[in-house]
Computed example of a mutant assay.
Amino acid sequence: MILAPKSKLLKQRHGDAPTIVQILPAMVRGGVERGTVEMADAIQKHGGRAVVISHGGPMVRHLDRLGATHHQLDVHTKNPFRWPQVRRQLKAILSRENADLVHIRSRVPAWIALPAAAALGIATVSTVHGRFVAMSAFKRIYNRKLLKTDHVIAISNYVKDLITSQYVGVEDRLTVVHRGVDIDLFNPGNVNQTRIVNFVEGLAIPEDVPVIMLPARATMWKGHRILLQALAKIKDRPFICLMIGAGDGKPAFVSELVRLGQQLGLEGRFRLTPLIDDMAAALMVADVVAMPSITPEPFGRVALEAQAMGRPVVAFDHGGATESIRHGETGWLAIPGDADSLAAALQAALDLGPRKRKMLAATARQHIEANFSTETMCRQTIKIYRRVLDRAAANRNAKS
C-alpha cells in the first residue's frame, strides 16, 4: 500500500512525535483489523508513533512489518468483573507509551479504556464500525459508551443516521469517514496472469462460464440463501457461483446451503470455498460480484474492492451499499429481500456486452479512486486526530 509521501501533519508543535494508540478486541482477519493496520501505517507516515493494543491474532504480523508497537491485553473480555484488572494493566501501558491519543474501535474496549484515558488526561476518538441498534435499555447504555469520546467517527452516513436517531448530543463531534480500499493492491493492472491461473486451477473453475462471486463470512445475514433463490430464477443460462468464505462455516451452515441449492436445481452450479488470501486475483475471475446482505451492511468493503477491480456489483438497496454503488453505472441495487429483483440485477450484469463492460469497469475504478481510497480514509482520520490533539492542548493551556 502506498500512501502520500511522509508529512508532518501529526507532529506536535514542540517537535515530538505524538503517540496514537488504537484499541480493538483482536487482530483477526476482518475489515476493522485491516483498517487498524492501514491507520498504523498512516500514523507513522504522517509523523506519529503507532501503538495497537488487542488480544492478538494473525494480523499482528502486519503491524510488526510496519514497525508499529503491539501490546497483547485482554481488552476483548466481556466479563465486567475482569475489567478493573485489565484497566489497570492498560493504564500502565498508556503511561509507559506516553500516549497522546487513544482511538477505540469497539464497545468492550470502550468500557475498559475510557476510564483509564480519562484518569490520565488522554484525548480520545472512537469509530463506530457496526450497525448501532439498541433493542433494549441495557443495550442502549452498553452502546452509548462508544460515543463518550472527544470525537466519534462513523464509517457511513447510514451508521451516522442510526447514531443520531437514537442518541442526542453527538452531532457536533460526529464525522463520517468512509472506509477505504487499497487501490494499489486492488488494481487489475497489478495482478499478473500467474496469480489468476493459480486461483482458477485451485478451484478447478470451468472455462468460458460466467462467474458470479459472493465473498463473505459464513453467516446467514450475508445473503447466501437469497442468492441461491435468485440464481434458481436464472438457471436456464450458464454460470458458476463461487461463495468465497462460505466453506469456512459450521457444518450445519454448509449443509443447509448445499441442501437448499440441490432443492432449487442448482447442483453443480455453485461452490462453497474457504476464505482466500489473494482476493484481487479472485475478483479478476468474477463477471459479477454479489453482496446480497439481508441485513443492511454498515458499509461493505467488498463493494469497494470489486469496483476497484472494475467488476460490477449487485447488492440490495439499503445500508452502506447505497453510498458506494452507483446504480446503473458501477453496479445494480435490487429491492431489499426480493429474490426476483436480485435475479433481474444479476441478469443485467451478466448481459453486459464487451464495450459496456469495459465502460463500467473504467467508471467503477475512477469512482473508487476519487472517493474511497485508503489514502483518503487515512488522511481524513489523521486530520481528526490533529484537531482533537490541538483541542486537548488548548484545554490544558487554559487550565495552566
Rank of each mutant, 00 (worst) to 15 (best):
P188Q: 03
L227A: 09
A204G: 02
R217F: 13
N192C: 08
V258K: 15
V168Y: 12
V285S: 07
N187A: 09
G245P: 14
V200R: 15
E256D: 14
D277H: 12
R217H: 14
N192A: 00
V197G: 09
L264S: 10
L185W: 02
L275R: 12
D236Q: 15
K250T: 11
G189V: 02
R225F: 09
N157M: 01
G247C: 12
R259P: 00
G268F: 02
R271E: 09
V176G: 05
T164G: 03
D161I: 00
V159S: 01
D277N: 14
G189N: 08
V191Q: 07
R225N: 01
L266F: 06
D184E: 14
L227M: 13
A216H: 06
Q193Y: 00
L227R: 05
L174Y: 04
M243N: 11
I163F: 02
E201I: 04
K235M: 04
E267R: 15
D161L: 04
N190M: 07
A246D: 06
D161V: 00
V258H: 12
N157L: 01
L275H: 15
L260P: 10
L283H: 05
N192M: 01
V176M: 07
D248W: 08
V177C: 08
L283V: 08
P215V: 10
L185N: 08
I205F: 06
I163G: 05
E207N: 13
P238V: 06
G265R: 04
F239G: 11
P238Y: 00
G169H: 08
R269L: 11
M213V: 14
I205L: 15
A282H: 02
V159G: 01
K222R: 14
V258P: 01
N187E: 07
V211T: 13
D208I: 01
A232W: 02
D248Y: 09
V258A: 11
A246R: 05
L242E: 06
L283E: 06
E256P: 04
D182L: 09
A246I: 08
L272N: 03
R271L: 12
G189H: 05
L283A: 07
V168N: 15
D287S: 13
D278H: 11
G249R: 07
A280T: 00
T194Y: 06
G268M: 12
V159E: 02
R271K: 13
L257D: 04
V176E: 02
S255H: 13
V209C: 05
